[in-house]
Write a protein that binds this DNA or RNA. Structure first.
Lengths: 212, 212
DNA sequence: TAGATTGTTAATCGATTAACAATC
DNA sequence: TAGATTGTTAATCGATTAACAATC
């Protein structure tokens, strides 16, 4: 393993690099220097070179970076072509929105099952996958061995659910609830999207203004 | 203004403190030390005291912190009881999910209008607010002067839309698109929720494992 | 070759943690 | 008073930026 000391802050920047490069590529730009990319992204050239260098350095002295090549390299690092077998818990509005993100080509994930406790949802098709009642979760996992679970339900009963999912072999969670999976299960990987937290931070900033 | 040198990293932690305190409060816990809160939240006691001290210090030596009081104080800092007049652009699944977050009591925001370019959505009611066609956006803003816009549409045409919204007096954005509002309009406040970025980061982490 | 720009190390900056005096 | 725990300053750690030699 080459990549042993890569900090999470660098990893978190990769998707944004990927998006900007995608845009440059689709505009037919083939070559870019760290300086120009920095200007476009609001970063320093130093940071960009430093970041890319964590993965071995993709540039060429005197030239810069080849856009399509760099784009592909970052995609590979993010394992964008992987198909991590994924289940979605909760088929409400948020669940549906999130399902479409997971089902995007090159998300790195593959939606395999959707579960909801609301009987009325059973059988409905979302992104080509039928919604199953939550009671089928355990059997489905035993049969299909998903590795990732996406949580789009409120926090109540999350302890039982996550304990079960971990027992059934789930290795990573995309968590939209406020339940603290990482605290309860340090052995799994968790990325949480706390919508309410984001909104509250915006509330603070809006009320306290831009420049003080 | 007392609070001039409070870093964004502290602000971002406040909502999580708020959630944990809400939970403690609802469990009838009245008093907590920085040490115990640190254990529950996976932080250091030092950081907790340091964070709270940015706002003046809410504790009492030898005792700790009074939970309901601290909870209220943090809510006040986050302006949780404010009602920032807010419009939502995009009434798809994500828009609907997000509308319910905004409409939660004590979110700090008040949903005033919803807009969508899909004619078929016009007149539908979401969180008590009728969906209007996007063509009515300009007049609505002139009549109602919203301060915050929530963006739940794809990135295409975002330049024109955000230019217009800024011109119409929008001061802050909750942005779910990939368009970089902050780069285009440094004068406004932006909190972005990049779902795809979060998912890609999870892809990297899942593929590269927990402990290396 | 001369000019440009990377890769990479060293310096700086900011955030986190440790320590302890103040005080309830 | 003695014990506990904060508020606050100093030390440490890590991330960002600057600098420059390597090299295309």
């Amino acid at each position: 393993m080459e990549k042993n000391n890569i900090s999470i802050s660098v990893i978190k920047r990769l998707p944004r690099y990927y998006r900007f490069l995608e845009n440059l590529k689709s505009n037919g730009i083939v070559r870019i220097s760290s300086k120009e990319l920095a200007e476009r992204m609001g970063l320093t050239a130093s940071q960009i070179r430093h970041d890319f260098n964590c993965f071995g350095g993709f540039g060429q002295q005197g030239y810069g970076y080849n856009v399509p090549e760099l784009y592909d390299k970052i995609g590979d690092i993010l394992c964008i072509n992987g198909e991590l077998k994924t289940i979605l818990i909760g088929a409400g509005n948020l669940g549906k929105a999130v399902a479409s993100k997971i089902s995007t080509r090159k998300s790195g994930f593959k939606l395999a099952g959707i579960f909801d406790k609301n009987e009325a949802m059973s059988g409905k098709i979302i992104e080509g996958i039928p919604v199953r009642h939550i009671d089928y979760l355990e059997n489905f996992c035993r049969d299909n061995s998903p590795v990732c679970a996406v949580i789009c339900i409120p926090s109540n009963d999350m302890k039982e659910l996550t304990d079960l999912l971990c027992k059934l072999g789930i290795k990573s969670f995309w968590n939209f609830s406020n339940y603290d999976i990482a605290m309860a299960h340090p052995e799994v990987l968790v990325r949480s999207v706390h919508l309410t937290d984001s909104l509250m931070t915006l509330s603070y900033l809006t009320n306290n203004g831009n420049e003080e």
